[in-house]
């Protein structure tokens, strides 16, 4: 799994590529939470993510909490139908704004 960090103005864009499972989530979390700790607005782009397990949901939850505690905004883009399914099943979907693509997501901040 790869994680690419970029910024657009005051928005931190986190693009993840690959599968988010207990193994890969463990590999990236230290770096990821350090980056998120300095951000107020986060766009998480999942266009290149082919698999998310409960470890990925836990990651989403922790990012969401960090950002919300600073009254920031978390937006998701490129979420596949399979990932939307598990977000719906676990009640996560109601708490996230989800856009089809990165450009629309960026415009909504």
């Amino acid at each position: 799994m790869n994680v690419i960090y970029t910024t657009a103005g005051n928005i931190l864009i986190i693009a993840i590529e690959g599968s988010i499972d207990s193994n890969t989530a463990g590999d990236i979390q230290v770096n990821l939470y350090e980056r998120v700790a300095e951000a107020t607005n986060v766009l998480l782009d999942l266009s290149e993510v082919d698999f998310v397990s409960s470890a990925g949901l836990r990651m989403l939850l922790l990012i969401y909490r960090q950002i919300k505690s600073r009254n920031g905004k978390v937006i998701l883009s490129g979420v596949s139908d399979e990932i939307k399914d598990i977000m719906a099943l676990t009640g996560f979907i109601n708490f996230f704004e989800i856009f089809q693509n990165k450009a629309d997501a960026l415009n909504s901040f």
Partner: peptide, 21 residues
């Protein structure tokens, strides 16, 4: 439990739930 806002949620049990469902 699944409608509790994410700020107040405990994360446990989701993996087993995803497996069974």
């Amino acid at each position: 439990a699944l409608s509790i806002p994410l700020e107040q949620r405990t994360i446990g049990g989701l993996g087993i739930m995803l497996a069974r469902e």
